[in-house]
Computed example of a mutant assay.
Amino acid sequence: MDKSSKDKRSKIMRAIKSKDTKSEVLLAKALWKRGHRYRKHNKSIFGTPDLSFKKYKIAIFVDSEFFHGKHWDIVEKRPKANAEFWQKKIERNMQRDDEVNVFLIQSGWTVLRFWSDDIRKNLYTTVRTIEKHIAEIHDRIYFE
């Protein structure tokens, strides 16, 4: 059972951002500081990645654990209130993520997805992973 009233829960859920979340801003600033130039929420790229490097065809998505179904296979972690609604919503989000991944990969893009918590806990590792992909693609483009 939800501990908050219906109005309070509605207010809380409305306040959740879909763009420029703390994790996304943290990652973007870290990449910018290291000299990487990217585009945010580029609508010309299928799936509208949170960050993208069009030159290298790299699409980066920062996924929240709740809305993108991290640990969705663990039933105890699923919402109890309005369970049917959340199950449909989150499972559709997961399906959409897969569709976006498949389309972009088939179009020659590298798709990188990171969980918000992983970015906050391991920012340096996340940035290095992205830099590794940039370097590999850069070398492939310019030295082959």
Rank of each mutant, 00 (worst) to 15 (best):
E144D: 14
K57A: 08
M94L: 08
R140N: 09
D98V: 13
F53C: 14
W86A: 04
R39L: 13
D98L: 13
I105R: 13
K77P: 05
K3G: 05
F143E: 15
K6T: 11
M94H: 03
N42T: 02
F143D: 14
I137P: 01
R78T: 08
I60D: 11
M13W: 07
K17M: 12
I60S: 02
V127L: 07
R34D: 09
W32V: 00
S18P: 00
Y56L: 07
K8S: 13
I60Y: 07
A135I: 12
I58W: 02
A28V: 00
K88D: 09
L26G: 00
E99V: 02
A28E: 07
S107W: 02
D63T: 01
K57D: 04
F53D: 02
A30H: 06
N122A: 04
L112S: 09
F53I: 12
W109H: 02
M1G: 09
I134L: 15
Q106C: 10
F46T: 11
S18N: 13
H41A: 02
D20W: 00
K11A: 14
K8V: 13
R92E: 10
R113V: 06
E84Q: 09
L27D: 10
I119L: 07
R37Q: 11
F143N: 14
A83D: 05
K33R: 14
F85H: 14
I141D: 06
V102R: 06
P49F: 01
F114N: 05
H36C: 09
N93P: 10
V100Y: 06
H71S: 15
V62L: 10
V111L: 06
F85W: 12
L31V: 00
R140I: 06
H133N: 13
I12E: 12
M13F: 04
I16V: 15
D73G: 15
K77C: 15
K70D: 07
S116M: 02
V75W: 12
A59I: 00
W115Q: 13
E24T: 05
R92P: 00
I137R: 15
N93M: 05
M1E: 11
V127Y: 01
D7Q: 14
W115I: 08
K121L: 14
V127H: 01
D63H: 15
V75P: 04
K88N: 14
D73K: 05
D63M: 02
D98C: 12
K3Y: 03
G108C: 08
R9W: 06
S64H: 04
I105V: 14
I134Y: 01
L123T: 11
Q106K: 15
L27Q: 02
A83L: 01
R92F: 05
V127M: 05
F67I: 06
E91F: 03
W115H: 11
I90P: 05
A135V: 07
E84I: 05
G47S: 06
E24D: 01
Y38V: 07
K40P: 01
